[in-house]
Nucleic acid binder design. Structure first.
Length: 422
DNA sequence: TCTGGGGTCCTAGGACCC
DNA sequence: TCTGGGGTCCTAGGACCC
C-alpha cells in the first residue's frame, strides 16, 4: 500500500501563539523578533502585506512599525515550545505515525485513513484550532517533498481553505510548471543560482532533467529530491527522534562585553544549558569548542574572532567539569581591548552515556556521585522553574544578558503568569 | 543603540595504512 | 627511463532546513 503524507504547518506560528492569549491582535499587523530583538522572524499576514521582509533587522523597519502601528514581540520560546507540544499531541490523535519536523511542522502518515483525505485534513485543522487556538495548513501528497509543496499552495490560495491535496491533482505538469525551483523544499539560494544559470527555472524543468546531471550538480540529496517530485518516495517518515550529534549554545550580548569576567559568566551559562541538553538525551561530549567574536556589522570597530577546541580525557556531561574546561579555553583566546558581541560553546563527538570509557590514569573521579548531583539539579530546575539552582560562575546580575524588550508572559507554563479572567 | 540561534547531510582532499 | 593499488578516517567547506 502506497504511503501518503500530510504536512501540517502552523500559520505564522509565533504570531499565532501571541494572538491566542491576546485576541486584540487579530486582524492587526504583528511581528515577532529573534533573540536579542535582532531581526523579524515571524510576521502576520497583515505585516507581510505591508511589506515587512522576513529577517529584516528590527532597527531598519522601526519607521514602518510606527507608521502602521504594528504590534511587536520578543521571542518567547517558553510559550512557543509549550504551544508546539500541544499542537503535536493534538495531531497525534489523527495519526499514530507522526514525525515532528520542527517547532511548527509535522509530517503525518495518512495511510489507511478514510478515503476523503481532504475532508480528514479539514477535521484536523478544525480540531487543532479548537484545542490550541493555532491555525494550521495541510498539504497532502505521496512524497514528503510534494506534501511540502501542497502545503505552500494551501497557504497561498485562500480559496483552498487551508488544505491542498496534490495526489488528487489531474494536471501535475501544469502545477509544477507554475512552481519556481527556489520554492521547492531542499533548493536554497545556492542551487537556485546554479539551476537558473543552466536555464532551469521551474519545478517541471527540474523534474525532467536526467538523473546523471542532477547527481553531478546537486549530489545524491538533489537526486532524491527530484525523484520525490516524480512521485517516487525517497524520504521516509522518521518517527523516532535520534539524539543530537552536536550541541551549540550561544547568544549575542544585550550590550558589548569588554571584560573576560563578563564573557566568562555568559559562557558558563551557555555551557550549563548545553550540558543540560546532553543529559536530557543521556549522552556525553568528548570534544568542546569555545568561540568568541566581535560585532561583524560594526565595520568601524576593531574585529576579532577565534575558536578553540579541546578533547576531554573522558567524555562528560558533568556541568562543573565542562565549565572548568570551557573557561580555561576562553582564557586562551580572549584578548582584551575589544567590544565582544558573542561567545558560545559547542559540544561534538557526542556519545551515549553508557559508552563512556573511563580513563585509567585519572584520579579522583566519582562518576556515580556526579550523575546523582546532576540529576538532582535537573529535577529541581525542571519542577521549580529554570535557574532555581545554577552555578556561581554564571553570575548573578547578568548585565550581558540578551535584550527582550517586548516579551509576553509565560501564559501556559508559569503559575504566576496564567491569564486572568476579570 | 540597533543585524538570531540552532541543526543536518554530503563531498573532496589530505593523511595515513598495508 | 622512470613513479602500484587499494583502503580508511578525518576535516573543512558547502549546501540545506527551521
Amino acid at each position: 500500500l502506497k504511503n501518503i503524507f500530510a504536512l501540517v504547518d502552523c500559520n505564522n506560528f509565533y504570531v499565532s501563539c501571541e494572538r491566542v492569549f491576546n485576541p486584540s491582535l487579530e486582524h492587526r499587523p504583528v511581528v515577532v523578533l529573534s533573540n536579542n530583538d535582532g531581526n523579524v522572524v515571524a510576521r502576520s499576514d497583515e505585516a507581510k502585506k505591508i511589506g515587512i521582509p522576513f529577517g529584516a533587522p528590527f532597527f531598519k523597519v522601526q519607521e514602518m512599525i510606527k507608521r502602521y502601528n504594528i504590534a511587536v514581540f520578543s521571542s518567547n520560546y517558553t510559550l512557543y515550545g509549550d504551544m508546539s507540544a500541544r499542537v503535536m499531541s493534538c495531531l497525534n490523535k489523527f495519526s499514530p505515525e507522526i514525525e515532528i519536523y520542527s517547532i511548527d511542522e509535522a509530517f503525518l502518515s495518512l495511510r489507511g485513513m478514510k478515503s476523503d483525505l481532504t475532508e480528514y485534513a479539514h477535521e484536523i485543522r478544525l480540531n487543532v484550532k479548537q484545542c490550541t487556538g493555532i491555525p494550521v495548513s495541510v498539504g497532502i501528497a505521496q512524497t514528503k517533498t510534494l506534501a511540502k509543496l501542497g502545503n505552500r499552495i494551501a497557504k497561498k490560495n485562500p480559496a483552498f481553505n487551508g488544505v491542498f491535496d496534490i495526489s488528487e491533482n489531474p494536471d501535475m505538469k501544469k502545477l509544477l510548471d507554475s512552481v519556481q525551483v527556489s520554492d521547492i523544499w531542499g533548493v536554497g539560494p545556492g542551487y537556485t543560482r546554479k539551476l537558473n544559470s543552466h536555464g532551469i527555472y521551474t519545478a517541471l524543468q527540474l523534474k525532467e532533467m536526467p538523473d546523471k546531471w542532477i547527481e553531478k550538480n546537486m549530489t545524491i540529496t538533489g537526486l532524491r529530491l527530484v525523484w520525490e517530485l516524480r512521485n517516487r518516495s525517497c524520504l521516509p517518515l522518521e518517527e523516532v527522534t535520534h539524539s543530537k550529534k552536536g550541541i551549540v549554545s550561544s547568544r549575542s550580548f544585550g550590550k558589548p562585553v569588554k571584560t573576560i569576567e563578563e564573557a566568562a559568566e555568559a559562557l558558563a551559562s551557555y555551557v550549563s544549558r548545553a550540558a543540560e541538553k546532553l543529559r536530557i538525551q543521556k549522552s556525553a561530549t568528548s570534544l568542546i569548542t569555545v568561540f568568541i567574536t566581535t560585532n561583524r556589522f560594526k565595520k568601524e570597530e576593531c574585529q576579532y574572532s577565534n575558536t578553540i577546541s579541546n578533547e576531554l580525557p573522558v567524555p562528560s556531561s558533568y556541568t562543573p567539569e565542562l565549565i572548568d574546561y570551557s573557561l580555561r579555553l576562553l582564557k586562551l583566546i580572549f584578548k582584551p581591548g575589544y567590544n565582544y558581541k558573542k561567545v558560545g560553546i559547542m559540544f561534538s563527538g557526542i556519545i551515549p552515556e553508557e559508552e563512556i570509557q573511563q580513563n585509567l590514569f585519572l584520579k579522583n573521579r566519582d562518576p556515580e556521585k556526579q550523575i546523582k548531583l546532576m540529576q538532582t539539579l535537573d529535577v529541581l530546575n525542571k519542577n521549580m522553574g529554570k535557574n532555581t539552582i545554577c552555578f556561581a560562575s554564571e553570575g548573578i546580575k547578568k548585565k550581558w544578558h540578551m535584550k527582550r524588550s517586548f516579551l509576553s508572559k509565560k501564559f501556559t507554563t508559569c503559575w504566576d503568569e496564567i491569564p486572568v479572567v476579570k
